[in-house]
């Protein structure tokens, strides 16, 4: 297969001047190639997006029945609905709490695994292994570890003379518990990206730095980290988006509790639309959340394009 592709590419570049077909037929042929994708994209992406926006102006119910036009009622209800803003804040709080450790710990792990010699394979395996577990397994393990009384974590804490922590039932700690679990589970992916980037740094830079008398610490700060800047940018973007999507772990570990203190916005949308059948109202909340994500993405895009100009 790979051979086929490269030979096609070579053939194409060699015969670029010998083409007989007009640009127009070429373009038409291209259209036919993207048409299957476009049809699926329209049916499963564009149409739902448009119809979701449409539904946010109606009292559409999952239970069926005639939906009537509400104007902006869903939207004004949303503005006055404290549960929307509380759960949106929970999502943002999770993102703010989870992104720094997921980036920083991944970097430290990658630096360690990159330096270590013969047991590097063990570190790579150990750091990445949790990532392949399904979320249901991860949460099951951690819920048992967090149990008061007989859970592994609290048993350890009391064993060394510290008081128990209400990992799952204390409102001020529950979100931290989810962040710890998520970090353990998904840090391996960022670790892998960093490791690949580290291995892509040319060795001669380090050699030159060493010749110039740079200490290991200076090599880290002046060579390694600047060379990882683009990767860090990528990881931060991917991590922010992934963290904003938080739902699974919180739903499975805490069901949004205790007292809704960890309920993320996606869970509230799910509860409103599917448990309470209010698809119209749930659509309005989804669009508000969509707007928040767009704002964050645009802000990031600005930051990044700014940084690129700076480096030029």
């Amino acid at each position: 297969m790979a051979v086929n592709v490269s030979s096609t590419a070579a053939g194409r570049s060699g015969t670029a001047t010998a083409r007989t077909g007009s640009p127009r037929t070429e373009r038409l042929a291209g259209l036919w190639f993207v048409l299957p994708f476009l049809a699926l994209f329209a049916a499963f992406m564009i149409w739902p997006v448009v119809s979701g926006l449409w539904q946010s102006f109606f009292n559409v119910s999952l239970a069926g029945g005639e939906a009537s036009f509400l104007g902006l009622d869903n939207w004004t209800e949303m503005i006055g609905d404290a549960a929307v803003w509380d759960s949106l804040w929970n999502t943002v709080a999770f993102t703010l709490m989870s992104t720094p450790p997921l980036v920083a710990i991944a970097l430290v792990m990658a630096l360690l695994a990159n330096r270590s010699g013969w047991f590097g394979w063990l570190l790579r395996f150990a750091y990445f292994a949790p990532f392949v577990l399904p979320v249901a397994v991860v949460t099951l393990i951690w819920v048992w570890m967090y149990q008061p009384g007989f859970g592994l974590v609290n048993a350890f804490l009391t064993g060394i003379g510290l008081p128990e922590v209400g990992w799952l039932n204390d409102e001020s700690v529950a979100m931290l518990s989810v962040v710890i679990t998520t970090t353990w589970w998904t840090v391996g992916f960022n670790f892998l990206l960093y490791l690949a980037a580290l291995q892509g740094i040319p060795q001669h830079l380090y050699e030159a730095a060493a010749v110039d008398g740079a200490s290991p610490r200076q090599r880290l700060w002046r060579v390694t980290l600047p060379m990882l800047r683009r990767t860090t940018g990528l990881i931060v973007v991917l991590q922010l988006v992934a963290s904003l999507k938080i739902f699974d772990q919180i739903y499975l570990m805490l069901d949004g509790g205790p007292n809704n203190s960890t309920r993320p916005i996606i869970q509230y949308i799910y509860e409103t639309g599917f448990t309470s059948y209010r698809i119209g109202y749930a659509s309005a909340i989804s669009y508000m959340f969509f707007a928040v994500i767009i704002l964050i993405s645009v802000a990031q895009f600005r930051l990044f394009s700014g940084r690129k100009e700076e480096s030029q």
């Binding site: 209400g166 039932n169 204390d170 409102e171 069901d255 949004g256 509790g257 205790p258 007292n259 809704n260």
Partner: peptide, 13 residues
């Protein structure tokens, strides 16, 4: 009910 009442036994509410 779960959200409101769970805090009672734990002593939070």
């Amino acid at each position: 009910a779960a959200a409101a009442f769970a805090g009672v036994t734990s002593g939070d509410l």
